[in-house]
Write a protein that binds this DNA or RNA. Structure first.
Lengths: 212, 212
DNA sequence: GCCTGTGAAGGATTTCACAGCC
DNA sequence: GGCTGTGAAATCCTTCACAGGC
């Protein structure tokens, strides 16, 4: 029944939700797939098809109720509850993540930070306690955590991923510049701005045939 | 001739390059599509097919020369030269990007930072001068910049993107939580860890049918 | 014997186009 | 008249499977 919804569809839903939230703030109460699609550079047909995997949320002749559809998407994605997150790695990148204010308002609460540097352990970062990495497994056994953020060097990342997965975590946001190996029932998303840059250069290299 | 290489293929090439660089550091001189695929969770056929868009780089019976293929990929992607980057926005996120050490060693040099806060303008961040955002256009007219990084609030991002594109920039790394509109000949990559999280929750919600 | 490169097949995703409803 | 929901068509992408070369 819920079976076989393409992952690309799932990945677009948060984008739709974000746009709907913005529309709601603008005071819009109704939106058509056409209008939403223009805003997101997505075809109206794609939006309608994506939504049709989950139900019939629109009204012919009118479009979609902004708040109604937003609520539906949040429910579908599981955004109607809080998620407990742990962060592993408190180097430069990890610190930036710990202090990043964008997760909390979306319901992602960092409940623990782990680092192997004794100088960091015991500190509070953004009001979150920093534990020794050695305590990772025992902490996770005692405290439920839904999502792990990996911000350790590439050479240490697979080991961290393994420990998170062994402790039962099923979702990993990986900032390390490597491809983690996980069982098929574990969700992984990679954040790597360098890879993003490196694919864009292909196109601007073409556009700029010569000249430095 | 070079026409019509799928974008998904281009997006995988940097991943291959990264893995090859790691193999080279490990002292490996030759790798098969099978071995590389295991490392990257990609089928060997996909690797071979991807590479076949650009030439014949392997040797039957042996595989690929690690350094040779890496050099080819770097050339294809345009990574065999330096790229000039500007950063717009020096809030918390912008500061983290400015101080992030991962771009420079890959050939992405941040040559200028722009911010609208008078308290930041004139400072040096990571040895890069901070300009007033008002100077963005005139600066770009006088100094060649290849790639723009957008790290301003969502409500200001489209305007920044427009100014970058009008100044001739063809590649944008967008950290703002919105979908930028650009002409078709401009490459955009979005970095949004919140969206990444929000798509994973769909799967862990399913896996965890009830419970707190 | 092993592994690449690649047409062809298969599968997945997007787009079309229209019946149906407001 | 405008817009959704959706089968069917079209397109895009991945995988197969094998000829050919090392």
């Amino acid at each position: 029944m819920t079976l076989e919804i393409p992952e690309v569809v799932i990945n677009r839903l948060p984008v739709y939700a974000r746009a709907l939230a913005a529309l709601a703030l603008d005071g819009e109460t109704v939106v058509s797939s056409q209008t939403l699609g223009e805003r997101l550079d997505v075809t109206p047909a794609q939006i309608r098809k994506d939504l049709s995997y989950f139900g019939r949320f629109g009204k012919q002749g009118r479009g979609y109720n902004v708040l109604g559809l937003l609520a539906k998407l949040r429910e579908i994605l599981g955004l109607d509850r809080k998620w407990r997150v742990c962060l592993v790695g408190l180097g430069r990148l990890g610190q930036a993540i710990a202090e990043y204010g964008g997760f909390e308002p979306q319901g992602f609460q960092i409940v623990a930070i782990f680092d192997s540097d004794p100088a960091s352990v015991g500190k509070l970062v953004n009001a979150v306690h920093v534990h020794d990495s050695a305590e990772l497994d025992s902490f996770l056994r005692q405290n439920p955590v839904d999502i792990g953020i990996v911000a350790v060097p590439a050479h240490a990342a697979q080991q961290v991923v393994d420990r998170l997965v062994n402790a039962g975590i099923r979702a990993i946001l990986n900032y390390a510049p490597m491809t983690p190996h996980v069982a098929r029932d574990v969700a992984v998303r990679n954040i790597d701005p360098v890879l993003a840059m490196q694919s864009m250069t292909f196109y601007i290299k073409k556009a700029e045939p010569s000249g430095k």
